[in-house]
Simulated scan of single mutants.
Amino acid sequence: MDTDALKTVLLVRDLGSIAGAARALNVDASNVSRTLAGLERDLGLRLFQRSTRKLSLTEEGDRYLSRVAPLVEEMDAAREEVTSKGGRPRGTVRLTASVAFVQEGLMPVLPDFQDRFPEITVELFPSDSNLDLLAEGLDLAVRLAAAPKGDLISTKLLQTRYRVVAAPDYLDRAGRPSQPEDLAGLNCLRFALPGFRHSWRFRRQGSGLFTVEVSGKTVISNALALREAARLGMGPALLADWLIAKDLEDGRLVDLFPDFDCAAADFDTAAWILYPSRAYLPQKVRVMIDFLKDEFRRPAV
C-alpha cells in the first residue's frame, strides 16, 4: 500500500475537505481527488460520502482510517530511527507564534538551538492570528492564553503575568497614578484584543477583585508596537511580563502598581506549546519542545 496516499487521505479526514488537504500539501485539488479515488479503488470500498457541500466519512472509512493511522505513524517513526544520522534528530520544524513572542521569546534562544541541533532546520511563522496547524502543515504553535481547549496537545511553557507600565517622562508630565482607579481618567494605550480594549482587572492580597474601565486615543493590534508607544511616553499600557522585563530593569518603563495582580480577561494565563494530537511525535519536534521548556524554566540572569 502506498503510504504517501494513506497520508494524503488521512489529511483529508483531519481537515474535512479535499481542498484543505490540497492547500496543506501545496498541490492541486485534482491530485488529492485522484489519490483518494485510487485508494478507494484499491480497497474496493468508499471511504467518504461526497456532496456539493460536504465531505463525510463512511462507517467503513472511519473504521479503516482509524486502524491505519497508528500504523502510518509507526512506519514514519521506524524510518526516522533508521535514517537519522548517528541517531541525531534531523529535518524541518515548522513553528508559529505571535509576532512579539517570536521576536522576544524565540529569537534569543534560537542560536543555541541551532548550535545543539545543526541538522534541524527551523521555519518560523510569526502571526498574530491563530494559524491552523494541520491546514498550514505546522508542527508546533506557542499560544498566549488561559488553558487551551480543543483537540491539540498542550504543555505549559511559562506562566505569564501582566503589568500596567508607563515611561518615566510620561509620569513626569502627567503624574503617577496612586491607585488603579486613577487610570479611568488617563489616556491609556489599549491593545486591540477582546478583553484588553475597554477594561483592566486588578486584585490585591486581602482585597477583592475589581475592574477599571479604561479609555484612550491609541489602540494598537501588535504588542511590540504597543510597547514602543509606552516607551515613547504616550500613556500607560497593560503588557506581559516577558515582553517588558528588560524595560523595567533598565528603567525605560515603570511598574505602576507592583502590589497588584493585573489582567485583561483572565489572571491565570500562560504561554503554551501546542501540537497535533497524535501518538507519534517526531524526534525533531520532541527535542524542540524539550529545549524550549528547559530554556524558559531557566531563571533569568
Rank of each mutant, 00 (worst) to 15 (best):
T92D: 05
T121A: 14
G91M: 04
A146V: 08
R79V: 10
P126C: 11
R90N: 02
G91V: 03
V122E: 00
L138A: 03
D139M: 06
V82W: 05
T121H: 13
T96M: 06
D151Q: 13
A100I: 01
R79S: 14
Q114W: 06
D139P: 07
D139H: 14
P108M: 10
G86E: 11
A145C: 15
L134E: 08
E80Y: 08
P111H: 06
E119H: 11
L131E: 05
E73R: 04
I120V: 14
A77F: 08
V142Q: 00
T96C: 07
G105P: 06
A145E: 13
T92S: 10
R90K: 13
N130K: 14
G86M: 09
D132N: 15
A147W: 13
L134M: 08
L131Q: 02
D151A: 13
P111V: 02
D151N: 12
F125R: 12
L110E: 03
E74N: 03
G87D: 05
L138I: 02
E119C: 01
V122F: 00
R79L: 14
P108S: 10
M75H: 14
P111G: 05
E80L: 09
A145H: 11
L124G: 01
P111Q: 07
L110P: 04
A100V: 03
V109L: 05
A145Q: 13
L106Y: 08
G150T: 05
P111W: 07
I120S: 01
E104W: 09
F117G: 01
D128E: 09
D132S: 15
S127I: 05
E136N: 14
A147F: 13
R94E: 02
V102Q: 02
R90F: 00
F125D: 03
D139V: 06
A78F: 11
G91S: 03
A141I: 04
R143G: 06
K85S: 14
T96F: 03
E73L: 08
I120Y: 00
T96R: 01
L138K: 01
T121W: 04
L140N: 03
E119R: 13
V99Q: 11
G150I: 05
L144S: 15
Q103L: 11
R116M: 15
E73K: 01
S84R: 14
E136M: 13
L95H: 03
T121Y: 08
E136A: 11
D128C: 10
E80M: 11
V109F: 02
G105T: 10
N130C: 10
D115L: 11
L131S: 06
M75K: 13
F113N: 03
P89F: 01
V109P: 01
L110F: 04
S98M: 02
S127G: 09
A77C: 09
P148D: 02
K85D: 12
L134P: 00
A147N: 12
G137S: 10
V99D: 09
V122H: 00
L138C: 06
G105D: 10
T83C: 10
V99M: 09
E73I: 00
P148T: 05
A77V: 01
D112H: 09
P126N: 10
L138M: 03
M75I: 14
A135L: 12
L106D: 04
P111R: 01
V122W: 01
F117R: 00
P108D: 10
G137D: 04
T121F: 10
G150W: 06
E136G: 01
L131A: 07
G86T: 07
D115I: 08
G87P: 09
V99F: 07
R94N: 04
